[in-house]
Nucleic acid binder design. Structure first.
Length: 550
DNA sequence: CGTGTTTGACCCGCGC
DNA sequence: GCGCGGGTCAAACACG
């Protein structure tokens, strides 16, 4: 059975099948008097046939996918070039990395990008004061940080950097993107109106409003939600009205990363953990962090999208804002001249609030899953004051977020093939222990033994790559992932509705729900996650263990 | 010894 | 102006 499934591996699969068939045939010649084996052979052949058919079907899907992709890419490029103007569109620039690299050196306006409303100058000033007054041994790093800040200028909040952005993929054809590349992309994309930088900056000063925040409510019995990013705790407070202390974390991937998160238990229901994200990652994210980051950025983009029309920070700057979702290729209104007042995704129950000093959105992942699925497709509930994002959830317990995002499927699938066999932490297809959620690097560091064992076992195999490919592609999880990818990309052709696809792309966290919900009938159901063993090691969020005391 | 957490002090914005 | 509360800093401490 296992061997049969392995034959599904693309490339070389049929060769292997023939070899196996012939060997089986030889056995049959020797053991003709064994009807049992004949039955086994028949069933194996039948199964093989099915698998082959499925393999063929998947290939067809993939071919179609690639054709569609190329077609769309061509169309998109045409549109972009038609619109070519002195102020090049951000998409064009994103697609023309070479060009924008040159611009980066030529145009000082990249130093200022749009803000989500929070005036950065005062903050920068404050930071400067603080940093310069810091201890001598930190002087060097402080100066560097200040310089970086000055170089980078203002940034959009609540988006994240993806080093496998579709635009990049489409340009490079490869997922590998240097941090510089990403940084450049972000600078480019974040400075749509860079030529008007001073004015925009001024506008930002006049509109000191409000850095968007995204809160995620998750039923979680661990101290913090494992979102794949690295956090360092820098403070804790008892907030008014909640006996549970609020913990403050900052992103520790890079010292200069401005991203903060607050973690607090809900006073009404202690099992609910409320995590609030704020700020912009100025570095490439660990793979495992992409799902949450893109989800929060999409949610933030919704806030901003709403703000541009509903009056939240209704300055000129906000209307011209490049939403994070757009940055990540999440925006489906690419050809829509930003005239839509509605976010490019549908939120069944999101809570959007601008009453506080920060516009915020709450993604409620705590309630039962049935409601969402029964109400599918979810509808964006246009409520004057609040909506609730109710994502149902299997996100209880360890709260690992199932990751599968439709952007850059090729890369994701490649990652899956890499990670599953060797360490498997980067993608989750359902509930899984948090230790399986660590990004590649930290996992490699903290699980050296297992990784070494995995590598050893790989090397022991004469055809390690081939066998690994077989094993992975034979894995029902992979099939499901592939199915989800296919359905998400050619959603209009299958059960998945366009709305679902939108939602899925905007909120990768949802993807597993959607994929399980919308799998084509000929796809296999999602099986339990792979039992990837991993020792409980130092957490990606090192605070976790200690926080349990709280 | 390096890294991360704890925790009291401090800063700052906001409402009265 | 004052007090309150949220947010941050940084020295002390803990841990591997």
């Amino acid at each position: 059975m296992e061997e049969t499934l392995k034959r599904k591996a693309p490339g070389g699969a049929f060769k292997e099948e023939k070899r196996s068939e012939s060997s089986h045939a030889d056995e049959d010649c020797k053991d003709e008097d064994m009807p049992l084996k004949e039955n086994e052979l028949d069933s194996a052949k039948a199964e093989m046939h099915e698998v082959r058919e499925e393999n063929q079907r998947l290939r067809t899907y993939l071919d179609k996918m690639m054709k569609d992709y190329q077609s769309l890419k061509t169309q998109f490029n045409n549109i972009v070039h038609e619109k070519d103007s002195p102020k090049k569109s951000r998409y064009d620039r994103a697609l023309n990395h070479q060009e924008h690299v040159e611009q980066k050196h030529d145009t000082p306006e990249f130093d200022v990008s749009l803000s989500l409303g929070r005036s950065s100058s005062s903050e920068l000033k404050r930071d400067n004061v603080r940093k310069h007054s810091s201890s001598p041994q930190k002087a060097e790093t402080s100066t560097k940080t200040v310089e970086q800040d000055k170089e980078e200028g203002l940034r959009l909040g609540l988006d994240c950097r993806f080093d496998m952005q579709p635009s990049v993929l489409s340009k490079e054809g490869l997922p590998e993107t240097s941090p510089e590349h990403s940084l450049d992309d972000e600078k480019e994309v974040h400075t749509e109106k860079s030529e008007k930088a001073p004015e925009d900056d001024e506008v930002a000063h006049q509109n000191p409003a409000k850095k968007a925040r995204v809160s995620v409510r998750v039923r979680c019995d661990t101290p913090t939600m494992i979102d794949g990013c690295q956090w360092r705790k820098y403070g804790q407070k008892i907030a008014k009205g909640n006996p549970c202390p609020r913990a403050y974390y900052r992103c520790s991937v890079t010292p200069s990363c401005p991203v903060r998160k607050q973690v607090q238990r809900c006073s009404q229901d202690m099992s609910i953990l409320i995590t609030t994200y704020e700020g912009t990652h100025n570095h490439t994210l660990p793979i495992a962090a992409h799902a949450m980051a893109s989800t929060t950025s999409a949610a933030a983009s919704m806030i901003l999208s709403g703000s541009s029309t509903s009056g939240i920070g209704s300055s000129g700057a906000s209307t011209a804002i490049t939403t994070p979702a757009e940055l990540h290729g999440l925006n489906y209104y690419l050809s829509n001249n930003s005239t839509s007042s509605r976010p490019p995704f549908y939120l069944p129950n999101s809570s959007i609030s601008s009453s506080s000093s920060y516009p915020s959105i709450t993604l409620d992942l705590t309630s039962s899953s049935s409601s969402m699925m029964n109400n599918f497709p979810p509808r964006y509930n246009v409520n004057s004051s609040s909506t609730n994002l109710n994502f149902s959830s299997s996100l209880e317990s360890n709260s690992t977020l199932p990751i599968f995002w439709s952007n850059g499927n090729n890369y994701q699938l490649q990652n899956y093939t890499k990670n599953t066999q060797i360490m498997g932490p980067s993608l989750n297809f359902g509930r899984q222990h948090q230790e399986n959620f660590y990004p590649y690097n930290s996992f490699m560091q903290k699980n050296k033994n297992e990784v070494a064992q995995a590598h050893q076992s790989m090397q022991m195999d004469k055809n390690s790559i081939e066998s690994a490919t077989k094993a992975i592609t034979a894995d029902p999880n992979f099939q499901s992932a592939l199915a989800a990818a296919i359905t998400s990309m050619i959603g209009s052709n299958n059960n998945i509705s366009g709305q679902n696809a939108k939602l899925e792309q905007s909120f990768p966290v949802l993807s597993s729900f959607l994929s399980t919900n919308s799998q084509a009938s000929n796809m296999r159901p999602v099986p339990p996650p792979l039992p990837i063993s991993s020792s409980k090691s130092k957490s990606t969020s090192p605070e976790d263990n200690r926080d349990q005391v709280r």
